[in-house]
Simulated scan of single mutants.
Amino acid sequence: MTPLVEVAAAVMLRADGREFLLAQRPAGKVYAGYWEFPGGKVEAGESVRAALVRELQEELGITVTACAPWLTRQFTYPHATVRLHFWRVTAWEGEIGITAPLEHAAVEWQECSAAASVAPILPANDPILKALRLPTMMAITLAEIEGIERQLERLQAALGKGPKPGLGLIQLRDKGLPPAQRLSFAEAVVRLAHDAGALVVINDDAELARRVGADGLHLSSAALTACIVRPDFAWVGASCHDAGEIAKAGELGLDYALLGPVLPTPSHPENPGLGWHEFTQRITGNTLPVFALGGLRHDLLATAQAAGAHGIALMRGW
């Protein structure tokens, strides 16, 4: 049995969130020439955050000033099994050595929304590269309450601001609409979203998702419980209530989860919600991106990400 090595991995993001950094392993190391996220082994008695800060100081000559946990993945190589603790790093002091990296053969900035332009990349990082393509703001439709026409007007206005860093992912819910209305609404949503470069997932209706050319499927918590194999879509997510459901979503290889409500909502103001501390506790060690849901606004995105969320899902606030 190969030893388990704890590793801190840095997802270095530019201020606008559009690019991330990859580093090339130098000659003389295992997998020399392969590209990876900067970072390194967590030493005995050291926290993941402390290891991250130390490694980036040693490797890139920078001092981290803002970072937060994101995903945890385990991968077995021939020489070792690694548990990779991926942290987003969003602010630092000092200049990254682009022309003369300190401990790497090279470093390159890559676009989050596109396939990596460098190769080969360590295989443990494939799910992370896909997760970086996932927008950080999801809109959940409420056509049953607001009406279809008003929803489409609001959606067009929101998408007009650009899918990144604004709205980039739409979950079409509205399961109570008559089938014909839900179909025409879904077709209109997909047209608007795709024209703006945004993704659409359909809640609990694989047939409708395929019919309208949606990008994926969103499972309710009940559908997640019944699911035994990942549905065959490019993007699949699920609504979750606890760490166990998030873990199952990860085991199925889903692309994201929703967890909430975090704060009181207009529909249930008497429910205080999980709060940010409990939200963080429930997603600790998650293997897939988790959106915070419930009572949120655009200006709480940074707060959610500091608590470990990938992004936020908005029902009324988008």
Rank of each mutant, 00 (worst) to 15 (best):
R211N: 03
T284W: 01
D255N: 15
D215P: 03
T65G: 10
S267M: 06
E146L: 15
A91W: 10
I148D: 00
T284K: 12
P101G: 10
L301T: 04
R211L: 06
E58I: 03
E19D: 12
G294S: 02
A188E: 09
Q171G: 03
L21C: 07
T2Y: 00
T90A: 12
L122Q: 10
R49S: 10
A193R: 08
T284G: 01
A115Q: 14
L224S: 07
G33H: 13
G166Y: 09
V11T: 06
A32D: 09
L142N: 15
A186T: 04
L314S: 11
A27S: 14
Y256V: 10
L224F: 12
L60P: 03
A302W: 00
V48Y: 02
R154Y: 01
A306H: 12
G253Q: 09
E153C: 08
L217W: 01
P69E: 00
R73C: 02
L288C: 03
H277Q: 12
T280Q: 11
E55K: 15
G97Q: 14
A209H: 05
I121K: 10
G162F: 08
Y256L: 13
H194T: 03
P266E: 01
E108G: 08
P272D: 03
L224C: 08
G308F: 01
A249M: 06
L252N: 07
V189G: 04
E187F: 01
T280D: 00
A206P: 15
A119H: 11
L274Q: 04
A302V: 10
S113R: 15
G253H: 13
A106F: 13
D232L: 07
R191S: 09
V290R: 06
F185P: 01
A105V: 09
M12K: 12
W87G: 07
A313C: 13
V262L: 05
L4Y: 04
V190Q: 04
E55M: 09
G176E: 06
I140D: 04
W35Y: 07
A304T: 10
L172W: 02
I170G: 05
W318C: 09
L208M: 10
P123V: 03
A66F: 00
P178Y: 04
L217K: 08
W276C: 06
P178I: 03
T265I: 02
I121M: 05
L84T: 09
Q110E: 10
R49A: 11
I170V: 14
A131V: 02
R316S: 13
W35P: 08
S113A: 14
A309M: 05
R154Q: 13
A91S: 11
A66N: 09
A9F: 02
R83Q: 13
I140N: 04
A105N: 13
G40M: 11
A209Q: 07
S47V: 08
F37E: 00
T284R: 13
I312H: 10
K130I: 01
V7E: 04
F233N: 14
V212T: 07
P127K: 05
